[in-house]
Design a protein around this nucleic acid. Sequence first.
DNA 1: GTGGTCTAGACCACG
DNA 2: GTGGTCTAGACCACA
Lengths: 133, 133, 133, 133
Amino acid sequence: MLLTIDLDSEVPIYQQIRDRVVEAIASGDLEAGSALPSTRQLGADLAINFHTVNKAYDLLRQQGIIRINRKSGAVVRRDRRSGPPEPGIAQEWEERLRTLLAEAVVQGIRPDEVLGRSSAVLETFASSEELPT
Amino acid sequence: MLLTIDLDSEVPIYQQIRDRVVEAIASGDLEAGSALPSTRQLGADLAINFHTVNKAYDLLRQQGIIRINRKSGAVVRRDRRSGPPEPGIAQEWEERLRTLLAEAVVQGIRPDEVLGRSSAVLETFASSEELPT
Amino acid sequence: MLLTIDLDSEVPIYQQIRDRVVEAIASGDLEAGSALPSTRQLGADLAINFHTVNKAYDLLRQQGIIRINRKSGAVVRRDRRSGPPEPGIAQEWEERLRTLLAEAVVQGIRPDEVLGRSSAVLETFASSEELPT
Amino acid sequence: MLLTIDLDSEVPIYQQIRDRVVEAIASGDLEAGSALPSTRQLGADLAINFHTVNKAYDLLRQQGIIRINRKSGAVVRRDRRSGPPEPGIAQEWEERLRTLLAEAVVQGIRPDEVLGRSSAVLETFASSEELPT
DNA sequence: GTGGTCTAGACCACG
DNA sequence: GTGGTCTAGACCACA
């Protein structure tokens, strides 16, 4: 199973799919050129409607993360080696970071622990960087 | 104006209010015991329905961040000095962290820059720690 | 009726809606701030499913032409006074222009006539520019 | 290479082939009597299925732009010296022009720049008129 | 009452 | 066999 979703989550399913794909790319499980399952296939695997998968893929396409080809289906287009971020992206991202970090502080997670966990997560992403070489 | 919201954002207004309050607590602008504006007051200030403010406050109450009295209104209950997080919270938070960091990696933001920005944001929260009382 | 569509056209209905809205903005029938009909309303008027209208509006939103607000519905965001094009847009547009002009040449429409018709169309867009002032 | 296509474009491949052939005729690279590559040849060159090329050629034939013989293959039939357009064609073309110009206006491209670019493109088509023969 | 989400099924376009 | 389009109906989130 490429990815798992939570049907009971308040996060829309298509958003969960999108997030899981992004995480798979970040962790190196998917890299530029990797093919994603067809919408109907993934829909069947996850026991959801293929239209929902379609929406997730369409979102990824709009964000330049995958490309969709009638013949070969969805293919990863951008991975962590694809170069620096487009302008505006980083800024919008930092706003979300700020909200998430504020959340941590208020919930009592210590700043050093926040940074420690962040480092750990980033290393799980980076650790697979040596493998494909 | 205590906080600003974007009526055109895809983020629900009540969620924006909640996030801004959390950020205000994290940055020390609000601390345990501080009173929040009344729902009607804030609704008028933001030119939105006070039911929407109500929903935001209720969400904050459910998450243990504020408490609501019929008399004294909404009061901040938890701030960054309130001790360690509850067990489930930290775990759920880290999942969101993972998604956000994956996003950064895929968009091409370098890991060291991610940590740098995180540190910077955390310092804006911590710096005001000495100031109050 | 704000706009008309052709159900038999090979152009997707949602694309037609999008194009008609863009034309209405260009001709001044709609300007920044104008409200569009609700998706269900327009769907009923055009005798099509509201999901199709939804897709058209979503496309317009992605392209920054309208904004969508849960309360007030879809509102025009960008009109001909909204300033210069974003980089990349003009280039992509010129490619489409090149294809369209090639078509005209091959079909035997004379270059001077092409320019004449273009000017005429542009004037119908510009002519309403004095009115709202 | 006579023409290039983008496999990832949202524009169907057969449409891209058609458009490129039309542009080649407009620019004088192809003129009435010129032979097009065989469908299998072009399919091999572009690394696509020859059925797709077939579809593009068939479309061009339906539009009176090329003729297809079993013996001599596809031959250009109409170029910019072939006389005035058929009545319905010009009208349908102008509708597409109107949509494209509206797009430019809304995106903020100034009318004079639209006409300037149009003139420039038309000149690249006309300039080669003296060259052949 | 507004848009958003999900499901579902049919048909078409493309390669 | 792939994705794209359209329709349709139900339910929910939001204001």
